[in-house]
Design a protein around this nucleic acid. Sequence first.
DNA 1: ATAAAAAGTGAGCACTCGCTATCTATGAAC
DNA 2: GTTCATAGATAGCGAGTGCTCACTTTTTAT
Lengths: 205, 205
Amino acid sequence: MTTRRTQAERRDGTIRALLDATAQCLAERGYAATTTTAVCAAAGVSQGALFRHFPTRQALLVATAGHVARLNVDAFRELVDEDVDTVDGLVRAFGHLRAVVLSPANQTWRELLVAARSDAALREELLPARLDLQEQMYAVALELWGERLPADDLAAVLSIVVNMLDGLAFSALDPDPAAPPGRTVERALALLAQMIVDHYPQEHA
Amino acid sequence: MTTRRTQAERRDGTIRALLDATAQCLAERGYAATTTTAVCAAAGVSQGALFRHFPTRQALLVATAGHVARLNVDAFRELVDEDVDTVDGLVRAFGHLRAVVLSPANQTWRELLVAARSDAALREELLPARLDLQEQMYAVALELWGERLPADDLAAVLSIVVNMLDGLAFSALDPDPAAPPGRTVERALALLAQMIVDHYPQEHA
DNA sequence: ATAAAAAGTGAGCACTCGCTATCTATGAAC
DNA sequence: GTTCATAGATAGCGAGTGCTCACTTTTTAT
Protein backbone atom coordinates (compact mmCIF):
# COMPACT_ATOMS: atom_id res chain seq x y z
CA MET A 1 0.00 0.00 0.00
CA THR A 2 1.11 3.53 0.64
CA THR A 3 4.53 4.11 2.05
CA ARG A 4 5.00 4.80 5.70
CA ARG A 5 4.93 8.54 6.46
CA THR A 6 6.03 10.55 9.42
CA GLN A 7 3.36 12.33 11.41
CA ALA A 8 4.47 15.74 10.16
CA GLU A 9 4.23 14.54 6.56
CA ARG A 10 0.78 13.13 7.12
CA ARG A 11 -0.31 16.35 8.74
CA ASP A 12 1.11 18.61 6.03
CA GLY A 13 -0.38 16.39 3.38
CA THR A 14 -3.93 16.67 4.62
CA ILE A 15 -3.54 20.40 5.28
CA ARG A 16 -2.39 20.97 1.72
CA ALA A 17 -5.19 18.77 0.43
CA LEU A 18 -7.68 20.86 2.41
CA LEU A 19 -6.27 24.15 1.13
CA ASP A 20 -6.30 22.98 -2.47
CA ALA A 21 -9.81 21.61 -2.12
CA THR A 22 -11.01 24.86 -0.57
CA ALA A 23 -9.50 26.91 -3.39
CA GLN A 24 -11.10 24.65 -5.95
CA CYS A 25 -14.49 24.82 -4.27
CA LEU A 26 -14.32 28.61 -4.07
CA ALA A 27 -13.49 28.96 -7.74
CA GLU A 28 -16.04 26.44 -8.95
CA ARG A 29 -18.97 26.82 -6.57
CA GLY A 30 -18.54 30.23 -4.95
CA TYR A 31 -18.15 31.32 -1.36
CA ALA A 32 -21.52 30.31 0.05
CA ALA A 33 -21.41 26.83 -1.47
CA THR A 34 -17.92 26.23 -0.09
CA THR A 35 -19.22 24.30 2.89
CA THR A 36 -16.95 22.35 5.17
CA THR A 37 -18.75 19.23 4.00
CA ALA A 38 -18.00 20.00 0.35
CA VAL A 39 -14.37 20.80 1.10
CA CYS A 40 -13.88 17.58 3.04
CA ALA A 41 -15.47 15.58 0.24
CA ALA A 42 -13.20 17.22 -2.34
CA ALA A 43 -10.14 16.69 -0.18
CA GLY A 44 -11.04 13.11 0.64
CA VAL A 45 -10.89 13.80 4.35
CA SER A 46 -13.35 13.76 7.23
CA GLN A 47 -14.92 16.74 8.94
CA GLY A 48 -13.11 15.96 12.14
CA ALA A 49 -9.81 16.16 10.34
CA LEU A 50 -10.67 19.60 9.03
CA PHE A 51 -11.60 21.00 12.41
CA ARG A 52 -8.49 19.54 14.00
CA HIS A 53 -6.29 21.83 11.91
CA PHE A 54 -8.58 24.83 11.48
CA PRO A 55 -10.59 25.93 14.50
CA THR A 56 -13.33 27.40 12.33
CA ARG A 57 -14.48 27.62 8.75
CA GLN A 58 -13.26 31.19 8.57
CA ALA A 59 -9.78 30.15 9.65
CA LEU A 60 -9.73 27.68 6.78
CA LEU A 61 -10.76 30.37 4.34
CA VAL A 62 -8.16 32.84 5.58
CA ALA A 63 -5.45 30.22 5.29
CA THR A 64 -6.61 29.47 1.76
CA ALA A 65 -6.39 33.16 0.94
CA GLY A 66 -2.73 33.23 1.92
CA HIS A 67 -2.17 30.08 -0.10
CA VAL A 68 -3.63 31.37 -3.35
CA ALA A 69 -2.09 34.82 -2.86
CA ARG A 70 1.30 33.16 -2.94
CA LEU A 71 0.34 31.27 -6.10
CA ASN A 72 -0.80 34.50 -7.72
CA VAL A 73 2.41 36.33 -6.98
CA ASP A 74 4.37 33.47 -8.51
CA ALA A 75 2.23 33.63 -11.64
CA PHE A 76 2.78 37.37 -11.91
CA ARG A 77 6.53 36.92 -11.75
CA GLU A 78 6.49 34.96 -14.99
CA LEU A 79 5.40 38.08 -16.85
CA VAL A 80 8.52 40.09 -16.29
CA ASP A 81 10.55 38.99 -19.28
CA GLU A 82 8.29 40.53 -21.89
CA ASP A 83 9.30 43.38 -24.14
CA VAL A 84 7.14 46.42 -23.39
CA ASP A 85 8.73 49.01 -25.64
CA THR A 86 6.57 48.22 -28.64
CA VAL A 87 2.80 48.17 -28.88
CA ASP A 88 2.84 44.54 -29.94
CA GLY A 89 4.98 43.54 -26.98
CA LEU A 90 2.70 45.37 -24.61
CA VAL A 91 -0.35 43.69 -26.13
CA ARG A 92 1.30 40.30 -25.59
CA ALA A 93 2.10 41.25 -22.00
CA PHE A 94 -1.54 42.22 -21.48
CA GLY A 95 -2.59 38.89 -22.89
CA HIS A 96 -0.48 37.04 -20.36
CA LEU A 97 -1.70 39.31 -17.60
CA ARG A 98 -5.26 38.58 -18.60
CA ALA A 99 -4.60 34.86 -18.42
CA VAL A 100 -3.19 35.28 -14.94
CA VAL A 101 -6.11 37.37 -13.75
CA LEU A 102 -8.59 34.83 -15.10
CA SER A 103 -6.74 31.85 -13.65
CA PRO A 104 -8.52 29.71 -11.06
CA ALA A 105 -6.18 30.93 -8.33
CA ASN A 106 -7.14 34.51 -9.01
CA GLN A 107 -10.78 33.55 -9.28
CA THR A 108 -10.52 32.09 -5.80
CA TRP A 109 -8.88 35.24 -4.55
CA ARG A 110 -11.65 37.40 -5.98
CA GLU A 111 -14.33 35.23 -4.43
CA LEU A 112 -12.75 35.82 -1.04
CA LEU A 113 -12.51 39.57 -1.63
CA VAL A 114 -16.19 39.78 -2.47
CA ALA A 115 -17.15 37.79 0.59
CA ALA A 116 -14.98 40.05 2.74
CA ARG A 117 -16.94 43.05 1.51
CA SER A 118 -19.91 42.05 3.63
CA ASP A 119 -18.11 40.27 6.46
CA ALA A 120 -16.14 42.55 8.74
CA ALA A 121 -14.29 39.77 10.54
CA LEU A 122 -13.13 38.13 7.34
CA ARG A 123 -12.18 41.51 5.90
CA GLU A 124 -9.91 42.25 8.82
CA GLU A 125 -8.18 38.89 8.72
CA LEU A 126 -7.67 39.19 4.98
CA LEU A 127 -6.10 42.64 5.13
CA PRO A 128 -2.43 41.64 5.58
CA ALA A 129 -2.50 39.27 2.63
CA ARG A 130 -4.08 41.99 0.51
CA LEU A 131 -1.46 44.58 1.33
CA ASP A 132 1.24 42.02 0.70
CA LEU A 133 -0.13 41.12 -2.71
CA GLN A 134 -0.49 44.77 -3.70
CA GLU A 135 3.12 45.45 -2.74
CA GLN A 136 4.48 42.47 -4.63
CA MET A 137 2.54 43.37 -7.74
CA TYR A 138 3.99 46.86 -7.66
CA ALA A 139 7.45 45.33 -7.43
CA VAL A 140 6.80 43.25 -10.52
CA ALA A 141 5.45 46.27 -12.36
CA LEU A 142 8.61 48.12 -11.45
CA GLU A 143 10.64 45.49 -13.23
CA LEU A 144 8.34 45.63 -16.24
CA TRP A 145 7.93 49.36 -16.75
CA GLY A 146 10.35 50.87 -14.29
CA GLU A 147 12.64 52.34 -16.94
CA ARG A 148 9.83 53.46 -19.20
CA LEU A 149 7.55 55.44 -16.95
CA PRO A 150 7.95 57.81 -14.00
CA ALA A 151 7.11 56.14 -10.68
CA ASP A 152 3.89 58.10 -10.31
CA ASP A 153 2.54 57.04 -13.68
CA LEU A 154 3.65 53.49 -13.02
CA ALA A 155 1.25 52.96 -10.14
CA ALA A 156 -1.49 54.61 -12.14
CA VAL A 157 -1.01 52.37 -15.17
CA LEU A 158 -0.88 49.31 -12.96
CA SER A 159 -4.13 50.36 -11.34
CA ILE A 160 -5.80 50.89 -14.69
CA VAL A 161 -4.77 47.60 -16.23
CA VAL A 162 -5.26 45.32 -13.25
CA ASN A 163 -8.54 46.83 -12.17
CA MET A 164 -9.86 46.71 -15.70
CA LEU A 165 -9.00 43.03 -16.03
CA ASP A 166 -10.53 42.36 -12.63
CA GLY A 167 -13.67 44.19 -13.64
CA LEU A 168 -13.81 42.12 -16.80
CA ALA A 169 -13.48 38.93 -14.81
CA PHE A 170 -16.56 39.87 -12.84
CA SER A 171 -18.79 41.10 -15.59
CA ALA A 172 -17.86 38.64 -18.31
CA LEU A 173 -21.00 37.21 -19.83
CA ASP A 174 -19.31 33.87 -20.26
CA PRO A 175 -18.47 32.18 -16.96
CA ASP A 176 -15.74 30.10 -18.57
CA PRO A 177 -12.38 31.64 -17.62
CA ALA A 178 -10.61 30.14 -20.63
CA ALA A 179 -12.95 31.77 -23.13
CA PRO A 180 -11.33 33.90 -25.85
CA PRO A 181 -11.11 37.64 -25.16
CA GLY A 182 -14.00 38.84 -27.30
CA ARG A 183 -13.78 41.55 -29.91
CA THR A 184 -14.39 44.57 -27.70
CA VAL A 185 -11.98 43.46 -25.02
CA GLU A 186 -9.29 42.77 -27.59
CA ARG A 187 -9.75 46.25 -29.02
CA ALA A 188 -9.73 47.78 -25.57
CA LEU A 189 -6.44 46.16 -24.61
CA ALA A 190 -4.87 47.11 -27.94
CA LEU A 191 -6.03 50.70 -27.58
CA LEU A 192 -4.72 50.87 -24.04
CA ALA A 193 -1.36 49.54 -25.15
CA GLN A 194 -1.22 52.08 -27.98
CA MET A 195 -2.06 54.96 -25.68
CA ILE A 196 0.50 53.91 -23.08
CA VAL A 197 3.30 53.61 -25.62
CA ASP A 198 2.32 57.01 -27.06
CA HIS A 199 2.57 58.39 -23.57
CA TYR A 200 6.11 57.17 -22.96
CA PRO A 201 8.38 60.16 -22.34
CA GLN A 202 10.43 60.96 -25.44
CA GLU A 203 14.07 60.03 -25.05
CA HIS A 204 16.47 62.04 -27.22
CA ALA A 205 19.79 60.23 -27.17
CA MET B 1 -53.91 56.95 10.17
CA THR B 2 -53.00 56.06 6.63
CA THR B 3 -55.37 57.00 3.88
CA ARG B 4 -57.67 54.44 2.39
CA ARG B 5 -56.04 52.65 -0.56
CA THR B 6 -57.37 50.51 -3.36
CA GLN B 7 -56.26 46.86 -3.51
CA ALA B 8 -53.99 47.49 -6.49
CA GLU B 9 -52.29 50.32 -4.65
CA ARG B 10 -51.79 48.17 -1.60
CA ARG B 11 -50.34 45.44 -3.76
CA ASP B 12 -47.98 47.72 -5.69
CA GLY B 13 -46.92 49.35 -2.47
CA THR B 14 -45.74 46.15 -0.83
CA ILE B 15 -44.11 44.95 -4.04
CA ARG B 16 -42.10 48.14 -4.30
CA ALA B 17 -41.24 47.93 -0.61
CA LEU B 18 -39.99 44.39 -1.14
CA LEU B 19 -37.87 45.33 -4.16
CA ASP B 20 -36.32 48.29 -2.37
CA ALA B 21 -35.67 46.23 0.74
CA THR B 22 -34.06 43.48 -1.32
CA ALA B 23 -31.78 45.96 -3.08
CA GLN B 24 -30.79 47.47 0.24
CA CYS B 25 -30.07 44.08 1.79
CA LEU B 26 -27.96 43.02 -1.19
CA ALA B 27 -25.86 46.17 -1.05
CA GLU B 28 -25.42 46.19 2.71
CA ARG B 29 -25.24 42.52 3.64
CA GLY B 30 -24.38 40.66 0.45
CA TYR B 31 -26.11 37.95 -1.49
CA ALA B 32 -26.00 35.09 0.99
CA ALA B 33 -27.24 37.20 3.89
CA THR B 34 -30.12 38.51 1.82
CA THR B 35 -32.54 36.02 3.32
CA THR B 36 -36.26 36.22 2.81
CA THR B 37 -36.55 36.84 6.53
CA ALA B 38 -34.18 39.80 6.37
CA VAL B 39 -35.92 41.26 3.35
CA CYS B 40 -39.33 40.99 4.96
CA ALA B 41 -38.04 42.62 8.13
CA ALA B 42 -36.52 45.49 6.15
CA ALA B 43 -39.68 45.92 4.10
CA GLY B 44 -41.93 45.74 7.16
CA VAL B 45 -43.89 42.88 5.63
CA SER B 46 -44.54 39.25 6.48
CA GLN B 47 -43.08 36.19 4.77
CA GLY B 48 -46.49 35.21 3.51
CA ALA B 49 -46.77 38.55 1.74
CA LEU B 50 -43.45 38.01 -0.01
CA PHE B 51 -44.30 34.55 -1.27
CA ARG B 52 -47.66 35.72 -2.51
CA HIS B 53 -46.01 38.01 -5.05
CA PHE B 54 -42.79 36.12 -5.76
CA PRO B 55 -43.01 32.34 -6.07
CA THR B 56 -39.41 31.88 -5.03
CA ARG B 57 -36.45 33.74 -3.59
CA GLN B 58 -34.76 33.70 -6.98
CA ALA B 59 -37.78 35.32 -8.60
CA LEU B 60 -37.54 38.12 -6.06
CA LEU B 61 -33.85 38.57 -6.82
CA VAL B 62 -34.37 38.59 -10.58
CA ALA B 63 -37.12 41.17 -10.22
CA THR B 64 -34.82 43.25 -8.05
CA ALA B 65 -32.13 43.02 -10.74
CA GLY B 66 -34.48 44.54 -13.28
CA HIS B 67 -35.43 47.21 -10.79
CA VAL B 68 -31.90 48.38 -10.03
CA ALA B 69 -30.84 48.05 -13.67
CA ARG B 70 -33.44 50.65 -14.50
CA LEU B 71 -32.16 52.88 -11.70
CA ASN B 72 -28.61 52.51 -12.97
CA VAL B 73 -29.48 53.48 -16.52
CA ASP B 74 -31.24 56.57 -15.21
CA ALA B 75 -28.16 57.52 -13.20
CA PHE B 76 -25.94 57.08 -16.26
CA ARG B 77 -28.14 59.39 -18.29
CA GLU B 78 -27.33 62.27 -15.96
CA LEU B 79 -23.71 62.18 -17.11
CA VAL B 80 -24.31 63.16 -20.69
CA ASP B 81 -24.13 66.92 -20.34
CA GLU B 82 -20.46 67.03 -19.37
CA ASP B 83 -17.77 68.60 -21.52
CA VAL B 84 -15.30 65.93 -22.63
CA ASP B 85 -13.09 67.93 -24.96
CA THR B 86 -10.66 68.99 -22.26
CA VAL B 87 -8.72 66.85 -19.83
CA ASP B 88 -10.33 68.62 -16.89
CA GLY B 89 -13.81 68.02 -18.23
CA LEU B 90 -13.05 64.36 -18.79
CA VAL B 91 -11.69 64.04 -15.27
CA ARG B 92 -14.91 65.53 -13.93
CA ALA B 93 -16.93 63.13 -16.06
CA PHE B 94 -14.89 60.24 -14.66
CA GLY B 95 -15.57 61.48 -11.16
CA HIS B 96 -19.30 61.41 -11.77
CA LEU B 97 -19.03 58.03 -13.42
CA ARG B 98 -17.15 56.75 -10.42
CA ALA B 99 -19.89 58.00 -8.11
CA VAL B 100 -22.47 56.18 -10.21
CA VAL B 101 -20.50 52.95 -10.26
CA LEU B 102 -20.05 53.06 -6.49
CA SER B 103 -23.68 53.92 -5.80
CA PRO B 104 -25.78 51.47 -3.78
CA ALA B 105 -27.83 50.59 -6.84
CA ASN B 106 -24.73 49.56 -8.74
CA GLN B 107 -23.40 47.73 -5.69
CA THR B 108 -26.60 45.72 -5.67
CA TRP B 109 -26.20 44.99 -9.33
CA ARG B 110 -22.64 43.76 -8.87
CA GLU B 111 -23.65 41.53 -5.99
CA LEU B 112 -26.15 39.81 -8.26
CA LEU B 113 -23.59 39.43 -11.04
CA VAL B 114 -21.16 37.72 -8.69
CA ALA B 115 -23.83 35.39 -7.40
CA ALA B 116 -24.80 34.54 -10.97
CA ARG B 117 -21.25 33.45 -11.65
CA SER B 118 -21.74 30.30 -9.62
CA ASP B 119 -25.47 29.79 -10.16
CA ALA B 120 -26.43 28.74 -13.66
CA ALA B 121 -30.17 29.29 -13.21
CA LEU B 122 -29.74 32.80 -11.88
CA ARG B 123 -27.22 33.56 -14.62
CA GLU B 124 -29.67 32.63 -17.31
CA GLU B 125 -32.52 34.66 -15.88
CA LEU B 126 -30.26 37.67 -15.47
CA LEU B 127 -28.97 37.61 -19.03
CA PRO B 128 -31.63 39.80 -20.70
CA ALA B 129 -31.23 42.55 -18.13
CA ARG B 130 -27.46 42.44 -18.61
CA LEU B 131 -27.63 42.79 -22.36
CA ASP B 132 -30.14 45.57 -21.97
CA LEU B 133 -27.92 47.48 -19.58
CA GLN B 134 -24.88 47.05 -21.80
CA GLU B 135 -26.77 48.38 -24.78
CA GLN B 136 -28.11 51.40 -22.94
CA MET B 137 -24.68 52.28 -21.61
CA TYR B 138 -23.27 52.20 -25.11
CA ALA B 139 -26.03 54.55 -26.20
CA VAL B 140 -25.10 56.98 -23.45
CA ALA B 141 -21.43 56.74 -24.37
CA LEU B 142 -22.37 57.53 -27.94
CA GLU B 143 -23.89 60.79 -26.78
CA LEU B 144 -20.83 61.57 -24.67
CA TRP B 145 -18.01 60.72 -27.06
CA GLY B 146 -19.77 60.00 -30.32
CA GLU B 147 -18.31 63.00 -32.12
CA ARG B 148 -14.88 62.68 -30.62
CA LEU B 149 -13.94 59.06 -31.25
CA PRO B 150 -14.49 56.50 -34.02
CA ALA B 151 -17.17 53.95 -33.11
CA ASP B 152 -14.62 51.18 -32.67
CA ASP B 153 -12.54 53.12 -30.18
CA LEU B 154 -15.66 54.24 -28.41
CA ALA B 155 -16.63 50.76 -27.28
CA ALA B 156 -13.04 50.11 -26.29
CA VAL B 157 -12.77 53.25 -24.15
CA LEU B 158 -16.11 52.49 -22.53
CA SER B 159 -14.91 49.01 -21.70
CA ILE B 160 -11.69 50.31 -20.20
CA VAL B 161 -13.28 52.95 -18.00
CA VAL B 162 -16.29 51.03 -16.79
CA ASN B 163 -14.45 47.80 -16.15
CA MET B 164 -11.70 49.62 -14.32
CA LEU B 165 -14.18 51.36 -12.05
CA ASP B 166 -15.98 48.07 -11.48
CA GLY B 167 -12.71 46.39 -10.62
CA LEU B 168 -11.96 49.19 -8.18
CA ALA B 169 -15.33 48.75 -6.55
CA PHE B 170 -14.46 45.14 -5.81
CA SER B 171 -10.90 45.48 -4.66
CA ALA B 172 -11.17 48.72 -2.71
CA LEU B 173 -9.61 48.28 0.69
CA ASP B 174 -12.22 50.51 2.22
CA PRO B 175 -15.69 49.00 2.11
CA ASP B 176 -17.33 52.43 2.33
CA PRO B 177 -18.57 53.35 -1.15
CA ALA B 178 -18.53 57.07 -0.40
CA ALA B 179 -14.84 57.09 0.55
CA PRO B 180 -12.61 59.56 -1.31
CA PRO B 181 -10.83 58.22 -4.40
CA GLY B 182 -7.36 57.72 -2.92
CA ARG B 183 -4.16 59.07 -4.39
CA THR B 184 -3.39 56.27 -6.83
CA VAL B 185 -6.91 56.06 -8.19
CA GLU B 186 -7.04 59.80 -8.69
CA ARG B 187 -3.77 59.69 -10.61
CA ALA B 188 -4.97 56.73 -12.65
CA LEU B 189 -8.16 58.49 -13.73
CA ALA B 190 -6.25 61.67 -14.54
CA LEU B 191 -3.72 59.76 -16.59
CA LEU B 192 -6.42 57.91 -18.43
CA ALA B 193 -8.18 61.19 -19.24
CA GLN B 194 -4.94 62.67 -20.47
CA MET B 195 -4.17 59.71 -22.69
CA ILE B 196 -7.65 59.65 -24.16
CA VAL B 197 -7.61 63.36 -25.03
CA ASP B 198 -4.16 62.93 -26.56
CA HIS B 199 -5.58 60.15 -28.64
CA TYR B 200 -8.45 62.20 -30.07
CA PRO B 201 -8.10 62.38 -33.85
CA GLN B 202 -6.63 65.79 -34.85
CA GLU B 203 -9.16 68.07 -36.45
CA HIS B 204 -7.70 70.66 -38.80
CA ALA B 205 -10.36 73.27 -39.37
C1' DA C 1 6.31 -5.36 22.72
C1' DT C 2 3.71 -2.00 24.77
C1' DA C 3 2.24 2.36 26.30
C1' DA C 4 1.38 7.11 25.04
C1' DA C 5 0.41 10.62 21.81
C1' DA C 6 -1.16 12.36 17.62
C1' DA C 7 -4.26 12.21 13.62
C1' DG C 8 -8.52 10.99 11.56
C1' DT C 9 -13.55 9.30 11.66
C1' DG C 10 -18.54 10.08 11.25
C1' DA C 11 -22.90 10.26 13.71
C1' DG C 12 -25.19 13.80 15.98
C1' DC C 13 -26.45 18.63 17.97
C1' DA C 14 -28.20 23.23 17.73
C1' DC C 15 -29.51 26.30 14.59
C1' DT C 16 -31.11 28.78 10.22
C1' DC C 17 -32.83 28.68 5.77
C1' DG C 18 -36.46 28.74 1.99
C1' DC C 19 -40.86 27.55 1.60
C1' DT C 20 -45.90 25.84 2.69
C1' DA C 21 -50.22 25.37 5.01
C1' DT C 22 -53.49 27.68 7.60
C1' DC C 23 -55.76 31.44 9.38
C1' DT C 24 -57.32 36.63 9.68
C1' DA C 25 -58.18 41.29 7.82
C1' DT C 26 -59.70 44.21 4.11
C1' DG C 27 -61.53 46.22 0.04
C1' DA C 28 -64.96 45.27 -3.93
C1' DA C 29 -69.64 43.72 -5.78
C1' DC C 30 -74.33 43.37 -4.97
C1' DG D 1 -75.17 45.39 5.26
C1' DT D 2 -73.80 40.80 3.48
C1' DT D 3 -70.79 38.04 0.53
C1' DC D 4 -66.70 36.89 -1.47
C1' DA D 5 -62.17 37.08 -3.48
C1' DT D 6 -57.79 38.77 -2.45
C1' DA D 7 -53.87 40.67 0.49
C1' DG D 8 -51.34 39.80 4.45
C1' DA D 9 -50.00 37.46 9.08
C1' DT D 10 -48.71 33.35 11.79
C1' DA D 11 -46.96 28.85 12.63
C1' DG D 12 -44.42 25.20 11.26
C1' DC D 13 -41.78 21.68 8.24
C1' DG D 14 -37.85 19.54 6.18
C1' DA D 15 -33.35 20.15 4.50
C1' DG D 16 -28.83 21.63 5.24
C1' DT D 17 -25.27 24.30 7.89
C1' DG D 18 -21.01 24.75 10.98
C1' DC D 19 -19.24 22.48 14.61
C1' DT D 20 -18.56 18.76 18.62
C1' DC D 21 -17.39 14.54 20.67
C1' DA D 22 -16.75 9.73 21.72
C1' DC D 23 -14.17 6.67 19.30
C1' DT D 24 -10.59 4.13 15.99
C1' DT D 25 -6.29 4.07 13.51
C1' DT D 26 -1.56 5.32 12.85
C1' DT D 27 2.88 6.96 14.38
C1' DT D 28 6.35 7.69 18.09
C1' DA D 29 8.64 6.77 22.54
C1' DT D 30 10.12 3.53 25.95
